[in-house]
Amino acid sequence: MNVFRFAGDMTHLFSVLVLLLKIYATKSCSGISLKTQELYALVFLTRYLDLLTDFISLYNTVMKLVFISSSLAIVWCMRAHPVVRRTYDKDQDTFRHYTLVAGSLVLALLFHDRFTIREVCWAFSIYLEAVAILPQLVLLQRSRNVDNLTGQYVFFLGAYRAFYILNWIYRYFTEQHFSRWIPWIAGLVQTGLYADFFYYYYLSWKNNVKLQLPA
């Protein structure tokens, strides 16, 4: 594992912790898209199928379990927690996320390494992760006052993707085997989606004002 991969995993972990902290400390999930959280739960469940068959390292196993359980816990909180669920911005979180699931499934059935359940699930999870942030970005754009923790959550998620791109570039130049094009293209698309957000996050940080995305 190289330093970029590790930094990516840590910022990913940090984003989850920030989100859990926000929900736990404020008993509120305002500004958080349930649709994005459901998509992430689906991403992790379909990508980490290998938990059942292969053991790679304790690090991998623990991190995978953390990402699966935290995403399910967040979805549960937003849907069922007696206090938290009442703060969910349901009326603004209207992105039709099923279209993203359907599109990713079609892509995975068309473009995969081998036509096996695991390979198709893996490709599906990569495509879906690339676009899973869209409902969250749309909700951020609609929310007039984005609180700091929500902004930081999306910032760390974006940083995680950026570090993974650096990781793949590093691996491309240091390892013999060729990196695969599926995560390359999906990863670049995903990181590109954050570019706009990063710009406004930087502006709000520089000017020390609340984050607000233009409509």
Binding site: M1, R5, D9, H12, D50, I56, S57, N60, M63, K64, F67, W122, Y164, N167, W168, R171, T174, E175, H177, S179, R180, P183
Partner: peptide, 10 residues
């Protein structure tokens, strides 16, 4: 480890 494939990443 460097023998990990891209698919073993998180």
């Amino acid at each position: 480890t460097s023998s990990e494939s891209i698919k073993d990443e998180l």
